[in-house]
Amino acid sequence: MSYERWKSSLFAASALLVSTTIGAMAEPVVINVIDVAGDLQISQPALEKFQAEHPDLVSKFVFTQATAPELAGKLKAQQDAGRVDIDFVLTGNDALAAGMEQGLWLEILPKYADMFPDLKKLYLPGAYQMQEMTRGQAFVLDWYPSGPLLEYAPDRVKDVPDTPEKLMAYCKANPGKFMYARPANSGPGRTFVMGLPYLLGDKDPMDPVKGWDKTWAYLKELDGCIEYYTSGTTASMKELANGTRDIIATTTGWDINPRYLGIVPEEYKVGAFKNFHWVGDANLMAIPKGVPEEKLKVVLQLMAYLLKPEQQAFMFDHGYMYPGPSIKGVTLDMAPKESQETIEKYGRPEYASLIADNPTEPPLDAKELVEMFDKWDREIGAAKMQK
C-alpha cells in the first residue's frame, strides 16, 4: 500500500472511530475559540470549512484573541468559578507551557488516542519533537524551523552581523538600532534567545537556569544598547519599517508575512548567523479542563479534522509559519492559489538551503521555558518592557 493510501485509510478509520466513540450530537453547538498565537490568520479557513461540512455539529464559531501571558490567568479564573467558556485554544509554546505548569489543559492522550492516527508516522520529525513535549495535552497544528534570523533595512545596514559578537559590536556602535521583542509574547524573541546557547557554546542549551551562563551574560551586555523591548513582535516590525530600528530578530514566517501584509517593505532582507541551529516553533491546539461534554465531542472531531492533509495545506497561509504544515506529504501545490502566489513573491530562495544545511533543535520544554521567561523578565527586561 502506498503512503498516501495508507494515510487516507488511517484517517478514514479515525473518522469512524470518532463517530462511534462519542456518538451522535443532539444539536449543533457554539464553539468559543481563543487565539493567543495569531494563528487564526492561518487556520480560520480550515475551521470555517469544518463548520460548512458539519453544520450538524457546529452552529457557529466565536473567535476572540488575547496575548499569551494573560491566557493562563483567564482560564484559571474560569475553572475556579466552574464556568469555562473557552472551548478551543490556539496557542504557541509560551501559553501552552504556562498552562501545563498550572494544570489547566485536558489530557487528550492517551484517553482519546483511538480517535487520531499514529502521530509518529503522521508528523514531520521536527513537529513530532514538539508534539512529544505536549505530554498529550495538545496537538501541533502548524510548525516551522523558525529562527533565529535577523531582519534588516538594506539601505541602512550594509554589512549585517553574522555572529553574536558582530551583533554586539553593531549594537554598541549603533545604540537603540537593534531590537527583539519580549520572549514571553514573541516567537522571534524567544527563538532569538533560545538560539544563543548553541551559538555561544553554552554548557546545556536545554537548561536556561544552570546551563546558560554565556547566554545570560551576553543578553545582559546586549541590553546596554537596546532602548526597550516591545511587548509583541508586530510592534518591533513596525519600528523596523518606520526607521526607528535598523535590525530586529525575526523568523522565516515573520519575515515573509509582514512583507506580504505591507507592514515591512518588500525589499527588506534577512541574515543568518554562521553555523547556527534552527529552533523549532509551532502553534498548537488545546482544550481547557472543564469544557462541557457536548462541546468536547465536537472539539475532538475538529482536532482530528485539522490534522488531515487537505486542511494542513491551508497552513502554508501567507507565509506566517513558513513552511507551515506539520504533517508529512503536504506540498505547496496542494495549498490555495493565494498561498502559492505569496510564497512565490515573498519567499526567499535561500531558505531551502538554510533549512537543509543547519540542524533543527526543539525549543525548551514547558518547565524550562517558563523558567526562561521568568528569568528574562526579571533580569533582562524588567526596566525596559514596553507596556
Rank of each mutant, 00 (worst) to 15 (best):
Lys158His: 14
Val160Trp: 02
Val160Gln: 03
Pro161Asp: 08
Pro164Ile: 05
Pro164Glu: 07
Pro164Met: 04
Glu165Asn: 11
Lys166Met: 10
Leu167Gly: 10
Met168His: 05
Ala169Asn: 12
Tyr170Gly: 11
Cys171Arg: 11
Cys171Asn: 14
Cys171Lys: 07
Ala173Met: 10
Ala173Val: 05
Ala173Trp: 07
Pro175Arg: 10
Pro175His: 08
Gly176Cys: 08
Lys177Asn: 09
Lys177Gly: 03
Phe178Leu: 09
Phe178Thr: 09
Phe178Glu: 12
Phe178Trp: 11
Tyr180Gln: 01
Ala181Phe: 08
Arg182Glu: 11
Arg182Val: 10
Pro183Ala: 09
Ala184Arg: 14
Ala184Lys: 10
Asn185Ile: 02
Asn185Asp: 09
Asn185Phe: 03
Ser186Leu: 09
Ser186Cys: 07
Gly187Ile: 13
Pro188Glu: 08
Pro188Ser: 06
Pro188Gly: 04
Pro188Lys: 01
Thr191Gln: 05
Thr191His: 00
Phe192Lys: 00
Val193Ser: 02
Gly195His: 00
Leu196Pro: 02
Leu196Asp: 03
Pro197Asn: 05
Gly201His: 06
Gly201Ala: 04
Gly201Pro: 02
Asp202Asn: 07
Lys203Thr: 13
Lys203Ser: 12
Asp204Val: 01
Asp204Gly: 03
Asp204Tyr: 01
Pro205Tyr: 05
Pro205Thr: 03
Asp207Cys: 05
Pro208Ser: 04
Gly211Ala: 02
Gly211Phe: 03
Gly211Glu: 01
Trp212Ile: 06
Asp213Glu: 15
Lys214Cys: 01
Lys214Phe: 02
Lys214Thr: 03
Trp216Gly: 09
Tyr218Leu: 10
Tyr218Pro: 06
Leu219Ala: 05
Lys220Glu: 12
Glu221Phe: 06
Glu221Cys: 04
Leu222Ser: 05
Asp223His: 13
Asp223Ile: 03
Gly224Lys: 15
Gly224Ile: 06
Gly224Asn: 14
Glu227Thr: 15
Gly232Tyr: 14
Gly232Glu: 15
Thr234Tyr: 03
Ala235Val: 11
Ala235Trp: 06
Ala235Ile: 11
Ser236Ala: 15
Glu239Cys: 04
Glu239Tyr: 13
Asn242Met: 08
Asn242Ser: 12
Asn242Ile: 05
Gly243Cys: 09
Thr244Ser: 11
Arg245Phe: 07
Ile247His: 09
Ile248Met: 04
Thr251His: 01
Thr252Met: 14
Gly253Val: 05
Gly253Met: 08
Asp255Val: 00
Ile256Trp: 01
Ile256Glu: 01
Pro258Asp: 08
Pro258Val: 07
Arg259Asn: 03
Arg259Lys: 15
Arg259His: 04
Tyr260Phe: 15
Tyr260Lys: 10
Leu261Val: 03
Gly262Leu: 09
Ile263Thr: 15
Ile263Ala: 12
Ile263Leu: 14
Val264Met: 04
Glu266Ala: 14
Glu266Leu: 05
Glu267Tyr: 13
Tyr268Gln: 07
Lys269Cys: 14
Lys269Ala: 12
Gly271Glu: 06
Ala272Arg: 07
Lys274Phe: 01
Asn275Phe: 00
Phe276Pro: 00
Trp278Gln: 00
Gly280Leu: 06
Asp281Ile: 04
Asp281Gly: 15
Ala282Pro: 12
Asn283Ile: 09
Asn283Pro: 03
Leu284Glu: 08
Leu284Gln: 12
Pro288Phe: 10
Gly290Ile: 08
Gly290Ala: 11
Val291Met: 10
Pro292Arg: 04
Glu293Trp: 00
